[in-house]
Structures are given as structure tokens and as C-alpha cells.
Amino acid sequence: MTQATAVKEPSPLAVVVGDCVELSRRSLRHVTRNVDEIIQAFVVPVVLLLMFRFLFGGAINTGGPSYVDYVIAGVIVLSVTFNSPATAVAVANDLQNGIVERFKSMPMFGGAVLVGHVVAAVLRSLIAVVLVIGLGLVVGFRPTAGPVEWLAVLAVLLLFIVAVAWVATLLGLVSGGVEAAGGYATILVFVPYASSALVPPETMPTALRLFVEYQPFTPVIDTTRALLLGHPAGASVWLALAWWVPILVLTMAYAVRRFDRRTNA
């Protein structure tokens, strides 16, 4: 109708980046407008930390560091996985309410929808982690990590956070509905409980201990804990990378492919 709306041809890369930025902006707006999400992302981890510090902490003997020093790494990891249901639900919601159909009928980079959700999930997780560490310091957490260890913690956690965000996104994609998406993602919330997050694995029966020692969350927790407390992280760093780099690559690739496939089905 008017020449004002004539479309200039941006370069393909500019399209991809611009669309990802635009849809990240959208998902970040969601974070601030969704009360459930805020509670789940920020309030629950705080409550959890206080609960373990003051309610159960007195009764748990770690055989080493103080319980708050021990449990903080576990609560950090839990605060990341607590974000998964919100992410999975947001993705499933988009598919259900038809906005994805609209995006796909537009000359844009479709995968930007997923990237937007991942960016929001990562940001929520980072805020939650900072909150937990900050509150931890207030209630007695005394890290002995130097700058190098802090950077290493940040790097490992960032890998873990991004990977978990993609796993949650994929769950939202394959779930086929909002309720199911929430349900599947809850598994992600509970698996870390059966890890070294809250109590030392040595105290557990053999079968459980084997699971705990070989599941993917334990090395992330062990690495974080060791680095924060200035202990050698040992093999757990490599184990963490061996789990989470492939998880990230595979879920991201599969999610993007799966998202495209819906177009043709």
C-alpha cells in the first residue's frame, strides 16, 4: 500500500541474528510477566537453600565441610533444573496457541523461537544461581575459590545451564501439550535429588549409590563443590564435560530438526 512498508533485503546472517534477538526479547518479557515463572525460578531455590541450611542441615554430617558449604553446589544445580518446566511449558504453549504457525508463515528464521526460549531460560538460571550464591554467603557459605576457580565454575555452570535449557526446550517440543510438557520436565527437576547434591553418596545403599555416582548431574555438582571449596576437582570436570557437551550438541541439533519437521507434517 505504501512504499514505507517496502521490505529491504537484509543479509541471511543479519536475518538469523536479528530474529534471534527479537524473539529473545519476547521471551525475556515473558519472564517479567509470568508470576508462576518468577516464583518457580527464583523463590523456590531460595526456599530450598534456607530449608537445607536451617531445617535439615543440623542433622546432616558431611564428613568434611560444613553442611552449607557442601549443599550450596547442590542447590545451585537444583536451581537450574527448577527452570526446566517453565521452559518446556513455554515452548509447548507456543506450539499450542498457533503463534509458531504464524512465525513459520513469515520470511524469518524459524529456529529463532527456540533460541528465544533458550536465552530466557539461561538468563533465569543465571539469576537464580547468583541469588543462591548471594544468599549462601549470608547464611554461612564460605568459599575458598580463587579467581581461576570462580571462572572455571562459571564455565562449567554455563555449559550445564545452556544444555539443560535445550533439553527442556526439546521436552516442550516433543511433549505434544502443555500439561505433558510440564510433566516431562519435572523429571529433570527430580533426577538431581538422587545425586550428590544434598548428601554424600557414601551414605547411600549400593544400588542407589551406583546410580548417583554415574548419573550426569553428579559430576557437575562435584566439580562446582570442589572448585568453590578450593579442592582439586579431579576427574569430575572431565566427566561433567563428557556428559554435557554431547547432551548439548545432540539436544540442540535434534530440537532444531524436530522443530523444522513439524513444518512438513
Partner: peptide, 29 residues
């Protein structure tokens, strides 16, 4: 093309204006 599907495909958490501006940017206007 423009498409209005059977289900409303706007973002309920954004305002009307934000929806329109977002779509305009995604059309690279």
C-alpha cells in the same frame, strides 16, 4: 502473504502494540 489461522496466534503475554512491533521487526521492516 498474510495468514490468520483458526486459533488466534498472537502472544497473550505481550501488549497489542508489542505484538505488532515484534511482527514488523520479524518481517524486517
Amino acid at each position: 502473504i498474510g495468514l490468520t489461522g483458526q486459533e488466534t496466534s498472537v502472544d497473550p503475554l505481550l501488549t497489542g502494540r508489542e505484538n505488532l512491533v515484534m511482527m514488523g521487526r520479524l518481517f524486517h521492516l
